[in-house]
Design a protein around this nucleic acid. Structure first.
Lengths: 253, 253
DNA sequence: CATCGCAATTGATCCGGATCAAGGCACGTC
DNA sequence: GACGTGCCTTGATCCGGATCAATTGCGATG
């Protein structure tokens, strides 16, 4: 039930960011926080930032935030819910490219082609901050912190291709996947040991380039080994250290 | 014998960019060309660009352009030769991340961590244009074309992770690899049907996440099927259409 | 020239995960 | 309650590519 929105949350009321109590809580964990906060310190810049940020959503599970081929006009920070990005190959088979949690940003890979190169699909009820990219670009030229932040976010995402690469075992992939999610939840202020898997086993398998049956088997084995407790999509990491050990080859540090 | 360099080519003569005839030919195919050319149209900017571009090299095969952990100060455009990027996992096994041809740019993934996250190793005699990043950043804030160009290069590289992802057959991977190389050579003005493989079979296999033996077998099979002619590292694509067909799932368009 | 060392090729065997198949479970609707 | 429909789990079989091993070819070096 994460979709119980406070009344003043939707863009109908263009209230200043500082006035929205919930805003502050979210923004503190958002990938854009340093930009918004930095801009907030200067009154004239704050006005401009408000022009380029727009709240959109909610999207229901299965709805598209954007589609492959849509013209690129903006990037999106996830405010709530979960998103998967995916595309279809020539044979029409889905390829899951990634999952995005609250505070994370989607759409950066559309800057160059000037079209979105993939679909973004909500996995549960999700809503976003939409940043107009032309406006953001112009702002970046005037405010070094904004420019630097964009460079850093882009560069950071370059280092995030490793989970699916390589000839790694199913155990390694699944363990690394779970620990990656855990770390990202923890980084945004959520629990890093208990969380909900918003995506189906099939999506996980597709993302990890495994069969859904294999993912199921590995999770069952991890449960039998008391590494995790899992019931449906509710997950608890019972032995994160061991999981990190198993997936270490795929994990940073 | 790829190291037979023309006499005037080595950096012992630090001549200004505009004076170097070969420079113009190279710059036309370089990923930075739009930046350099755009800057060239304004005299004051040209001066600044000269400050931030520096010619480095040659590096001999096996020498490092940068190493994992080196502080990030600049990005490099390959002027000549070939480079591989790689890192070592905890077990000390090498992981080849990519190959870079003349005109392509390395180091963009170091902006965020502010350290190089991988090694860059010359595969043959190689030299570079070195762009100081702080200087470039400052220039980007003043010249929109430079900022836009950096955004685009970063975003473009985000779309380049697909070759090694996925559970694809060895045939698909090798065919896609060859066609990818061919396309990149062609884009830079070289032959797209006959070229030299600067990297060993082992490097190719490592990059494609296959065993070296498998790469060898696939190449032998492609030769038997008259798809390619290959002798050592000299390659000719005899039937690019068929190769594209085989690797199509991994290739753009 | 003989020798060494590395890269590449080719053959034989083995294993991990895909695939095919058959239920189980939780949800909805009628 | 009976039924359908996804989603998940578990079992049995098969195949592509890894691995181990042997051989060849070539450039470098003495």
């Amino acid at each position: 039930m994460q979709s119980k929105l406070p009344a003043g949350r939707l863009p109908k009321s263009p209230s200043p960011i500082a006035d929205d109590g919930d805003e502050n809580r979210f923004c503190g964990t958002c990938a854009f926080s340093s930009v918004c906060v930095a801009a907030g310190y200067r009154k004239p810049d704050l006005a401009e930032l408000q022009c380029l940020v727009e709240h959109v959503g909610p999207f229901r599970a299965g709805e598209h935030v954007f589609r492959t081929g849509d013209p690129f006009r903006a990037i999106f920070a996830v405010r709530g819910g979960t998103v998967k990005t995916r595309l279809f190959d020539r044979e029409g088979r889905e390829q899951v490219l990634g999952f995005y949690l609250p505070g994370e940003v989607i759409g950066l890979n559309a800057i160059y082609p000037e079209q979105f190169p993939c679909d973004a699909v909500a996995l549960d009820t999700a809503f976003f901050c939409r940043f107009s990219f032309p406006a953001m670009s112009a702002l970046a030229a005037r405010i070094p912190a904004v420019q630097q932040h964009l460079f850093r976010m882009l560069s950071k995402e370059l280092g995030t291709a490793s989970l699916l690469a390589g000839d790694h075992s199913a155990d390694e992939r699944v363990a690394a996947f779970l620990m990656d999610l855990a770390g990202r939840y923890a980084a945004r202020g959520f629990s890093g040991t208990r969380f909900h898997l918003s995506m189906s086993r099939g999506d996980i398998a597709n993302y990890l380039r495994l069969a859904a049956e294999t993912v199921s088997r590995v999770l069952s084995r991890f449960r039998a080994q008391k590494l995790i407790a899992i019931e449906g999509r509710e997950l608890e990491l019972l032995n994160p250290t061991a999981l990190r050990q198993i997936g270490q080859i795929l994990l940073p540090d």
